[in-house]
Design a protein around this nucleic acid. Structure first.
Length: 605
DNA sequence: CCCCCCCC
């Protein structure tokens, strides 16, 4: 009995071939959903095979009756091809509606010819070597070269290799805890750093990754031994075969991936790099939103966007008040051609390693919106992806726009002004700030200015504060080496020093007394609050040295301005939100802009 | 088995 050699290539390009005779090489149920039982067939014409053939459900009984075994020869009496998946990344599937069995598999007993995937046939007219992986290097996980397999591993290898040889991988969307014999072929879209944990239930380490194929996405986590074993091997953007992971319901609270399940690597988990057919797994898809549009999106929504990192904030370290854990973060300001700016927060290593002074293009996927003071900002949380200077057309367009001055006059601030962090407050002179009655409204005003430190008061420059990490309340010195915190309602044998420094700063227009707290004080004095407090109490010459060291130093001050009422007195109070070294490029840009406004010379409009 | 991302 002969097959209709070569017809699969024609059928899959849309040609209507009448009654092709084909051979079934494998049949597999593609989901475990009781309501919708579907079978996927690996079917061959002796020259090409198609691993994306589906049995229409009205024919399921044929398989249940055992009529569609391996090697069965069938005639397709009615079939259709259909594009499944989203536009752009669709895959053509052969759906078999009616068929006749010409020869049973048990009678036929063997595969006819050495078929290759029809997708390859399109690229190379002459049939090439099979593109379905057989045994390829590099192999890792439990799939080793056949020579050093032990018996235990053979079973696993057989599952993976037979599936791969048959060209049958499972769509991610079909995975569930009720079925564990599967192999998926997926692109790694994100990988976390290795994280350790320690809690009453134990300790360990882990990393997790996001996997994607045409059908969907899923998160996978590797703990302890698996973490060590796979961390270096799994690379972002790579395509791999995965099998033998444990599926469990996903905790939607912690993941925005569209899957009801997530998976955990086990001792049997296998991962194999896929070097062929990578094209069949879609690239990561970004639903890029202009920054201006984020204003209209809901709090906590996930956002993909791209912008130029116009400003970079300092690395900040803080201790969470709720968990007492230490965090590192860095705020960036992204701008784009919607003439808008938004603040993006990076965490952990992303924050530590970020180099923003070159103003790179930043592409993010799955960042969370945080609402504050009516503004919106983005946070790169777990499950988010960031790409720096990605090689995509949008990035090049932005680069060109920005390098030609596109970001100089950003009109729309999507994030609230905080004065702290990176957010660019307006430039004002100290004189302007007073004359414009800044701080007289309900909310504080923020501005930045270039100023020099004139006088620093050493008196009352520190206080003794509650030693609890999350509390900075002044303690009551009970005189018996005990310190009481009223807020924590607790006695302590110790305290910590906090700074509260008054200093006079001046620019070319005026000078003002401003207040700064510990973090800023430590930065200006170049010593910790502890060192400063001890020096002030016990070593006045050393304190004098520290304090005089900051005299006449120039900085960019970001200031918070607010009227405060003391008794019947209203005072306009300035608090330092941040100090940073003068970035002359930025500062000159500001000066040139001022000059243009004053003179009307050199302004393009 | 993690799962924390504060504050303003």
């Amino acid at each position: 009995m002969s097959l209709s050699t070569g017809v699969i290539g024609r059928i899959m390009q849309g040609e209507d071939v009448e009654n092709p005779v084909l051979q079934i090489l494998a049949i597999k149920r593609i989901n475990s959903n009781v309501e919708s039982e579907r079978y996927r067939i690996l079917i061959s014409d002796g020259m090409y095979f198609n691993s994306y053939a589906m049995l229409a459900s009205q024919l399921n009984h044929l398989h249940q009756a055992g009529d569609l075994e391996e090697f069965t020869i069938v005639r397709l009496d009615k079939y259709m091809t259909s594009l499944v998946g989203k536009e752009g990344v669709g895959k053509r599937v052969l759906i078999i509606n009616e068929l006749s069995v010409l020869k049973s598999g048990s009678e036929q007993k063997s595969k006819i010819g050495e078929p290759v995937t029809y997708e390859n046939a399109k690229k190379t007219p002459a049939p090439a070597a099979p593109s379905i992986p057989t045994k390829k290097e590099p192999l890792f996980g439990n799939i080793n070269s056949s020579k050093n397999n032990n018996n235990n591993n053979n079973n696993n290898n057989n599952t993976m290799n037979s599936t791969l040889n048959a060209g049958l991988t499972h769509p991610i969307a079909s995975l569930s805890p009720y079925q564990n014999k599967w192999v998926i072929k997926a692109r790694v879209t994100a990988k976390t750093a290795i994280r350790t944990w320690s809690n009453p239930r134990g300790e360990g380490k882990l990393f997790s990754m996001d996997l994607m194929d045409e059908s969907g996405e899923i998160r996978a986590t590797a703990f302890k031994e698996q973490c060590d074993k796979f961390y270096d091997l799994i690379q972002v953007d790579g395509v791999y075969y995965f099998s033998k992971c444990q599926l469990k319901p996903a905790n939607k609270q912690y993941s925005q991936l569209k899957n009801d399940y997530e998976m955990t690597f086990t001792g049997e988990t296998m991962v194999q790099m896929c070097e062929d057919e990578e094209d069949s797994i879609p690239e990561i898809k970004y639903d890029l939103v202009p920054i201006s549009q984020v204003s209209n999106m809901e709090n906590k929504a996930a956002v993909d966007t791209i912008g130029i990192c116009k400003e970079v904030g300092e690395l900040q370290t803080f201790t969470s008040r709720t968990t007492n854990k230490e965090f590192k973060k860095r705020d960036l300001t992204l701008v784009d051609m919607s003439n808008s700016a938004i603040s993006l927060t990076l965490w952990g290593d992303d924050a530590v390693n970020f180099d923003g002074h070159v103003q790179p293009v930043i592409l993010v996927k799955g960042t969370r919106i945080n609402e504050f003071n009516g503004g919106k900002s983005l946070s790169l949380g777990g499950g988010s992806i960031m790409k720096i200077n990605p090689d995509i057309p949008e990035a090049h367009k932005l680069r060109g726009w920005f390098d030609n001055g596109g970001g100089d006059n950003i009109a729309n601030m999507v994030s609230a002004r905080t004065g702290g962090g990176t957010f660019s407050a307006d430039w004002l002179t100290l004189k302007d700030a007073r004359e414009r009655n800044l701080g007289s409204g309900d909310k504080p005003d923020y501005f930045q200015c270039k100023a020099v430190v004139h006088i620093v008061k050493q008196e009352n420059a520190f206080y003794k504060a509650c030693p609890q990490a999350e509390c900075n309340k002044k303690v009551v010195d009970e005189g018996n080496d005990r310190y009481r915190c009223e807020r924590c309602n607790q006695d302590f044998p110790n305290f910590k020093y906090r700074l509260l420094i008054n200093l006079s700063i001046g620019d070319w227009t005026s000078n003002r007394w401003v207040t700064c707290f510990s973090e800023i004080g430590e930065q200006l004095l170049k010593h910790t609050a502890q060192e400063v407090g001890e020096a002030l109490e016990n070593d006045p010459p050393k304190a004098e040295q520290m304090f005089s060291g900051m005299n006449f130093s120039a900085h960019i001050f970001k200031l918070r301005c607010k009227n405060e009422v003391y008794g019947d007195m209203t005072r306009n109070k300035l608090t330092v939100q941040s100090v940073s070294p003068i970035n002359y490029k930025d500062y000159n840009k500001h000066l040139i802009k001022e000059l243009q406004q004053l003179t009307g010379i050199g302004s393009s409009n």
